[in-house]
Design a protein around this nucleic acid. Structure first.
Lengths: 366, 366
DNA sequence: AAGGAGAGTTGATACGTTACAATCGACTGC
DNA sequence: GCAGTCGATTGTAACGTATCAACTCTCCTT
């Protein structure tokens, strides 16, 4: 009675039709257009399905013309907590439309990206959400032209005609810097990562913008220091460098939370108080920064919402009147202990005091 | 020239065949059995494919009998860092076989689980890795019988004939407790979560086993305290309870790291020193516990390996001589500052001193 | 009472691919 | 030179479903 050979116990619509005493067309109608079928036949067919344990073959359905259920998500690494939250947002939106999500970690390897993109196309995916590994986006446009909608994740682009959803990193940098400026800081170290990463560049740019908005000169207020790695221990050497400065900063703005954590540890180890001697701002609001000894002020990204919005854009691609859109989501400043409560400092007064505290403590350690 | 109506610019093997001047069978052979095709024709066909931008239709291929590319992963919540690492292990193993992973978060809602399981079956998934939401596993066995292999994740079960990969939580609890016992602790609080969760029960059981192995009585050494929630702030009330005890513990063993973090904070806030006055052991080794003020001793689970192994089991299901296996992976103790270095304590000497330190500090706070 | 409308149902076809059996040459061994 | 062999290629029949035009009834209209 079973039809397929690969799945020994799997029945087809034909089996159901025979058992219910109807045609296969009616069985199909029960599944796809129940409104045209009498309630009575509907029940009869449903009963037959249940009795046989019928599961419909999506491959066949899809071949005949309907859409696939799945949406591809091509990212750097699902293991990364940032993408994880984004992925969850995507999944929830896609589930609303009865779909599911295929996860693809590229590890920033072009061949893996290419391989996954191809598989998703072959599979007839409903669409692909992608954080591109490279700057080039031509191949993505090509894929979209070929019928598989593409939405850029966390990467807006004016040069490309695709939908995109991203978080405004310039704005995030601006928020963080404005906060520090508001607290009176006039000399701020910017602990940055590799300038090949867009986020690093944008956040730095935002900080400069905030400084200018305060009527100050970025070149005087912001001093750049480079992390040796984007992880926590990448901050250590950078902090060490501070001692060489004649006019040390009173605050450190870090391009991500891990670096901020490392900076915090490095400072505490040198006997400095945070935020009294040095304020710290992070970026990302990863879960635990509220739990560490000095809870971190940081910039929170609407990660879940980013995913949800991106998926929403993707699912709207099918609509006939669709026009590509680029959505920019806004980050949010989360103030915690590492920057202390607002207090005015004169540009050269308290700030210098804090500076000398650093200098002496660094001397003491070395 | 294009054949499909859904994808306007999509060509079929027929188009490729025509352009290359061969039959469709040859085109198919080039893709699936290149060894039977001349190098010359192979090139010609490949050129035609490239020129047309041909992408093969997996739905059709699958319908004709071949396997789907994707493996389903049905878990509680992809957002959870534990699953995230597991997922990555799965993805890597599946990718080795040229597949990809479909992610499904059930949020422990039975209907969502059922819906996803059905979709995966319909889609003809290569198999499903699942952390079951409920105790009942009959429906999973049924699915496996119907031809979609199932592997239980982080949940062994003797009553069910399925493959399974899990981490030995009993052993993990034993490791942690044995470590504390080895340091001389003779009164250990076990900060537990809801007993409806298998992990909580198993870890507690492992602790008891370690105590017995040391020739002691679990009822005297272990004292159970219940967290009000499985998150960090769930520890606070539990710590508060300690003050009421005539004979306070010298160590706290927590069922997960978040609770341990909360416990640490609660203790520090009361002026206690960790580990001098009270040792703490966590469980999970989530990323940041090495970064907090007192780095946490904890039990690390081989998460990635769990995923990798489970996927490996799944992919081996297809082999004709397959027999279901239940793999139990071993956790690992990671010793950090929160338990200090080994030091002998007499059962009633130093331990009591630590105990009284707690008692007085608790008096001072309240 | 004849005709028509409309609601349910159905037979047949196409979707794109695969793999089997069949075909076609060319070449080997005798 | 001929039967036999082997390698390369091809025609074709599925796979399970969705859709459309066609068909059958029933019931209403005139």
């Amino acid at each position: 009675m079973a039809s397929s050979s690969t799945h020994p116990l799997r029945h087809s619509v034909r089996d159901v039709a025979r058992l219910a005493g109807v045609s296969v067309a009616t069985v199909s109608n029960v599944m796809n257009r129940p409104d045209v079928v009498t309630a009575a036949t509907q029940q009869r067919v449903q009963a037959a399905m249940d009795q046989l344990g019928f599961v419909r073959n999506r491959a066949a359905a899809q071949l005949r013309g309907s859409q696939s259920l799945s949406v591809g998500v091509v990212v750097l690494d699902v293991g990364n907590p940032f993408f994880t939250d984004v992925a969850r947002g995507i999944e929830d939106r896609v589930a609303e439309d009865g779909g599911m999500v295929s996860i693809c970690s590229t590890d920033e390897i072009m061949e893996k990206e290419a391989r996954y993109l191809r598989m998703l196309q072959e599979q007839g995916a409903r669409g692909i959400l992608v954080i591109p590994a490279a700057a080039k986006l031509r191949h993505l446009e090509e894929i979209a032209r070929r019928g598989t909608p593409i939405v850029l994740l966390d990467r807006a682009s004016r040069s490309v005609d695709l939908c995109a959803a991203a978080v405004d990193d310039v704005r995030g940098g601006e928020l963080a810097a404005a906060h520090l400026l508001g607290l009176g800081h006039r000399r701020i170290a910017f602990l940055n990562g590799p300038s090949s990463i867009r986020q690093c560049v944008d956040r730095r740019r935002g900080a400069a913008r905030a400084v200018r908005a305060a009527g100050l000169d970025p070149d005087e207020v912001l001093v750049d220091i480079q992390a040796s790695s984007p992880k926590a221990d990448g901050a250590e050497p950078a902090i060490e460098v501070l001692r060489e400065w004649p006019q040390p900063p009173t605050a450190i703005m870090c391009v991500n939370d891990l670096l901020a954590t490392g900076a915090l540890r490095a400072l505490l180890r040198r006997g400095l108080r945070v935020p009294a001697d040095m304020a710290i701002v992070g970026y990302d609001d990863i879960e635990f920064v509220s739990l560490i000894s000095v809870p971190l002020t940081t910039v929170r990204q609407p990660k879940y919402q980013l995913g949800y919005t991106a998926a929403d854009l993707l699912l709207s691609e099918t609509q006939p009147d669709h026009r590509h859109r680029q959505v920019l989501l806004q980050p949010e400043l989360v103030v915690r202990a590492s920057t202390g409560i607002a207090q005015r400092r004169s540009a050269s007064g308290d700030a210098d005091m804090a500076g000398s505290a650093l200098a002496s403590s660094l001397d003491g350690v070395s």
